[in-house]
């Protein structure tokens, strides 16, 4: 164990201040926290809750239904991140739809989906564009490339989301935020500073064991001091101004819209869709996708889990009807989801 880890661990294990609820907003943080066993070394007064920052978990049921409709009814090739393949829609997932003949291709980046479209002019290719501020620029780059190359058989089915609305919706559920480092690498830290001025504390954190422990150590130490604060604990990646190029790229091609978050509901202005000038790359427009309300399984409590109101094992279907093999809710299907992490990494050893 290296020195930084030891020092941060000592600060955390010796913490005897007031009870501190920390919401790790980001699903990748959730995953790493479980993978490293960080919860197991924390004293009782430090409580970690898993927030809504897993794009798969908050993607509404209707979005999966739309994707399956495009694949089966319109015969398009659906390109997607692997994360989405097993997410249950109302009746099927992309994985089960594949068995019915849906063309589903897993890609590493939206840019590969665009290239696939360029190489297969006879096919219509739709990229399932999910993700937060970190991921949206890649989708915009893919559309820009299609514009430049005159590729007309490529489009996005958008469900892109932005975090500020979610921070606003979640701020009363937690004492402080462990902010998602890679989101703020794009947006900068203005929003975090602003929230601190309003009394909402937080730290921006990286993803390695040292970075996570150091950020948590900073967070609880400052919390004990009692004043609202923001500390950027990930300056090697996150600059105060973020990525101006990414910001202007997205602003040129997309605009905010109201967006449904699975389990939470509609958060005004928290979505991103293609602007009218880019509409020919919008799959909903191109294929006249009908409105799909989507029906989540009513037994699922993912919504309360995402808000930090419920721990996964407190949900009635957790580990019984709902397992990673047969997920009922999206928090179980994504390996970054709180339920899946609790289930896979165990609670009692």
């Amino acid at each position: 164990m290296n020195q930084t880890i030891e020092r941060a661990k000592e600060i955390l294990t010796r913490y005897d201040g007031p009870h501190c609820r920390i919401m790790e907003v980001c699903g990748t943080h959730t995953h790493e926290i479980f993978r490293q066993g960080i919860r197991r070394i924390l004293p009782e007064q430090i409580e970690l809750i898993s927030g809504p920052g897993c794009p798969v978990c908050v993607t509404p049921v209707g979005f999966i239904d739309e994707a399956i409709w495009l694949a089966l009814e319109k015969g398009v090739t659906v390109c997607t991140f692997g994360d989405l393949v097993r997410v249950p829609g109302t009746e099927a997932s992309l994985q089960t739809a594949r068995g019915k003949g849906a063309a589903v291709k897993v890609v590493y980046t939206p840019l590969d989906a665009e290239r696939y479209a360029a190489e297969h002019p006879d096919k219509q290719v739709v990229f399932l564009s999910v993700g937060f501020e970190t991921t949206t620029p890649s989708a915009c780059l893919a559309v820009r490339k299609a514009q430049q190359d005159g590729i007309r058989n490529f489009s996005l089915l958008t469900a892109n989301k932005t975090m500020p609305g979610a921070y606003e919706a979640m701020k009363d559920s937690t004492d402080l935020f462990l902010y998602p480092g890679h989101v703020h690498a794009i947006t900068g830290t203005g929003i975090c500073e602003k929230l601190a001025e309003e009394g909402v504390s937080g730290v921006c954190a990286g993803f390695t064991a040292s970075e996570l422990l150091a950020a948590l150590a900073v967070a609880v130490t400052r919390y004990q001091e009692g004043k609202p604060f923001f500390v950027n604990c990930y300056p090697r990646v996150v600059r105060p101004e973020g990525s101006p190029k990414a910001q202007s790229l997205v602003a040129a091609m997309m605009e905010p819209c109201d967006e449904e978050w699975r389990g939470i509901g509609v958060i005004p202005g928290s979505g991103m869709r293609l602007k009218e000038s880019c509409q020919m790359y919008d799959a909903r427009v191109r294929f006249r996708v009908p409105e799909m309300a989507g029906r989540a399984n009513p037994a699922c409590r993912c919504g309360q889990v995402l808000k930090g109101e419920l721990l996964p094992p407190q949900c009635k279907v957790f580990g019984k009807a709902c397992t990673p093999e047969h997920p009922v809710g999206a928090c179980m299907v994504s390996s970054e989801g709180a339920c899946s992490a609790w289930y896979l990494y165990g609670q009692n050893l």
Binding site: M1, A209, L344
Partner: peptide, 15 residues
Amino acid sequence: TQIGAQTLLPEPGNE
């Protein structure tokens, strides 16, 4: 783990 804590290796399952 790297930080000297214990965690479960997730059980293998899906694709």
